[in-house]
């Protein structure tokens, strides 16, 4: 049974990791979550990013956030990756499977998956 005691334990643990403060993230993953994105399947894509970033141990350096309509509704679900000092990468027509691949190869491995980017549609 999930209890508030577990939540208190999470708090204890986090307080020992003050270094990993929010906002210090070098990389931002932004998922379009307006009506167009949601209807096209952005919710499972967002959740895949959140969970996979955690599973790969990247939660301290990568921030996964939501935004409204990016303006290219026909390519939803759209995900933008902002890395300090690099050009923005826009992934289009995303799925949870592609999201996991992006976390592993791009966010962890440093290699952009060109075939999923907007320049390739």
């Amino acid at each position: 049974m999930k209890s508030l005691a577990e939540l208190a334990a999470i708090k204890e643990k986090m307080q020992n990791k003050v270094v990993l403060r929010e906002g210090s993230s070098e990389t931002r993953v932004v998922v379009g979550m307006a009506t167009c994105g949601i209807a096209a399947g952005a919710r499972p894509v967002l959740n895949a990013f959140v969970e996979e970033v955690g599973a790969q141990g990247l939660a301290g350096n990568i921030m996964v956030t939501q935004t409204g309509c990016i303006g290219i509704c026909q390519y939803e679900p759209v995900v933008e990756v902002y890395e300090a000092g690099k050009e923005k990468i826009t992934y289009v027509k995303m799925t949870p499977e592609k999201a996991k691949e992006v976390v592993e190869k791009h966010l962890k491995g440093g290699k952009v998956i060109d075939e999923y980017t907007i320049s390739n549609v």
């Binding site: 939540l7 999470i10 307080q15 959140v50």
Partner: peptide, 27 residues
């Protein structure tokens, strides 16, 4: 609000907190 009272400064979008909320609701 009840979660925040336990968590203090730890934000609700912390990954472990989100997973806890998900698990709590699923249960």
């Amino acid at each position: 609000q009840e979660l925040k009272e336990v968590l203090g400064d730890v934000p609700l979008d912390n990954l472990e907190v989100i997973l806890w909320i998900k698990g709590y609701l699923e249960e």
